Lab assay of single mutants.
Amino acid sequence: SSCPGKSSWPHLVGVGGSVAKAIIERQNPNVKAVILEEGTPVTKDFRCNRVRIWVNKRGLVVSPPRIG
């Protein structure tokens, strides 16, 4: 992607959502990480300053967080 800084975090799958949020925002200060339960409807727009963290009912990351 053409967004500045780190853009994906595949190693965070299985980690707690709040831990993942802290790591992502520390590694790329340009983004705001948002924790969402899988299945939550979201907009389809692409934004360089957003990372969606998809978690299951136990709050664990279920897919690699990435910019968008």
Rank of each mutant, 00 (worst) to 15 (best):
V19H: 07
R50N: 15
N49H: 06
L36Y: 10
G16R: 10
R52V: 14
V31R: 02
E37A: 09
S2A: 10
P29W: 02
N30R: 11
K57N: 11
G17C: 04
G68P: 07
V55M: 01
G59M: 02
W9Y: 09
N49A: 06
C3M: 13
R58G: 11
K21G: 03
V34Q: 07
K44W: 05
V31A: 05
T40W: 04
W54G: 01
E25R: 03
V62E: 02
S2W: 11
A33V: 12
P29D: 07
E25V: 03
L12C: 06
K32L: 06
A22M: 13
R47I: 09
E38Y: 07
C3Q: 13
C48A: 14
R52I: 15
N30Q: 11
H11W: 10
P64H: 00
P10N: 10
G68L: 06
Q27M: 09
R66S: 11
N56K: 03
Q27F: 07
L60I: 13
T40M: 07
V31Y: 13
S1L: 07
V55K: 00
R66F: 08
L36M: 09
V31H: 03
V61S: 02
S1Y: 10
S1C: 11
Q27C: 06
I23E: 09
Q27E: 15
L60R: 10
V31S: 02
K6W: 12
G5E: 15
G14P: 01
I67V: 12
P29Y: 00
N56Y: 05
I35T: 03
F46N: 10
P41W: 06
R47F: 10
L60V: 12
R50M: 14
R66I: 12
N49E: 10
K57H: 05
P10M: 05
T43N: 09
E37F: 07
K44E: 14
T40N: 04
F46C: 10
C3P: 15
S8T: 15
G68V: 09
V55I: 09
G17D: 01
K57G: 06
V61Y: 01
S2Q: 13
G59I: 02
K21Y: 02
E25Q: 05
G5L: 14
W54A: 01
A22Q: 10
C48K: 13
G68M: 07
R66D: 05
W54H: 07
N30T: 12
F46W: 13
G59N: 03
N49L: 03
R50W: 12
A20P: 01
V13K: 03
N56T: 02
P64M: 04
C48Y: 08
V55C: 07
R52N: 11
S18P: 13
V19C: 04
N56H: 00
F46Y: 13
L36E: 03
C3G: 11
G5T: 15
T40S: 09
G14S: 01
D45R: 05
V61L: 02
T43F: 06
W9V: 03
D45A: 06
R26M: 13
D45W: 05
P29A: 10
G59D: 01
G68F: 04
V62D: 04
V51S: 02
K44F: 06
W9D: 01
R50H: 12
I53D: 05
R58A: 13
P29K: 10
S7R: 13
S18T: 15
K57E: 13
G14Q: 01
G16H: 13
W54Y: 07
V62K: 07
I24D: 02
V34F: 06
G68K: 02
V55H: 04
T43Y: 04
G14I: 03
N28Y: 10
F46T: 10
T40L: 06
V19W: 13
G59V: 00
I67M: 11
H11T: 10
I23V: 12
V55E: 01
K6L: 15
G16M: 14
G68W: 06
R58Y: 12
I35L: 07
S1Q: 10
P65G: 05
V55P: 01
K44H: 11
R58N: 12
S7H: 12
C3T: 15
R47K: 14
R66T: 13
A20K: 01
R58C: 10
K21I: 02
V31Q: 05
V13N: 01
P65D: 02
W9F: 08
K44V: 07
I23F: 11
I23Y: 10
V62H: 03
S18G: 12
I23K: 05
G59R: 05
S63H: 11
I24Q: 00
I24W: 01
A20E: 02
N56V: 04
C3Y: 15
V61P: 02
N28M: 09
V51M: 04
V61I: 04
W54V: 09
P10A: 10
K32F: 07
R50Q: 15
S2G: 06
A22L: 12
G5I: 14
V31F: 12
A20V: 05
Q27Y: 09
I23T: 05
R26L: 07
E37W: 05
E25C: 02
N30P: 03
V51F: 00
G17M: 01
F46A: 09
K21S: 04
P41C: 07
S18Q: 15
W54C: 06
E37T: 12
K44P: 13
I67N: 07
V15T: 09
P64K: 05
I35V: 08
I35M: 05
K6R: 15
N30I: 07
I24V: 07
A20Y: 02
G68Q: 05
S18V: 13
P65Y: 00
P29Q: 09
D45E: 14
D45F: 03
S7E: 14
R26D: 07
K21E: 00
A20C: 04
Q27P: 02
H11D: 14
R52K: 08
F46L: 09
I23S: 04
I24C: 03
S63F: 07
N56E: 04
G59Q: 08
T43H: 09
K44Q: 13
E38W: 08
P41D: 11
E37Y: 06
A33C: 15
V15F: 08
V61R: 00
W54M: 10
D45K: 06
I24P: 02
G39P: 00
E38R: 07
K32N: 08
V19P: 01
A20F: 01
K6S: 14
K6I: 15
K6G: 14
V34P: 06
G16W: 09
A22H: 10
S2L: 12
K44R: 11
V13L: 07
E37C: 11
L60F: 11
K32C: 08
T40H: 09
R66P: 06
V55T: 07
H11M: 09
H11S: 13
P29C: 05
S1A: 12
G17P: 02
S7M: 13
S63T: 12
V51L: 03
T43S: 14
K6F: 14
C48P: 13
G39F: 04
P64Y: 05
G39C: 03
K44D: 12
E37G: 04
R47N: 10
R58P: 03
G39A: 04
V15K: 11
V62Q: 08
S8Y: 12
G5S: 14
P4K: 06
T40V: 07
K44I: 07
P65R: 01
N30S: 12
V62A: 07
S7V: 14
K57I: 00
L36K: 03
V19D: 11
K44N: 08
R50G: 12
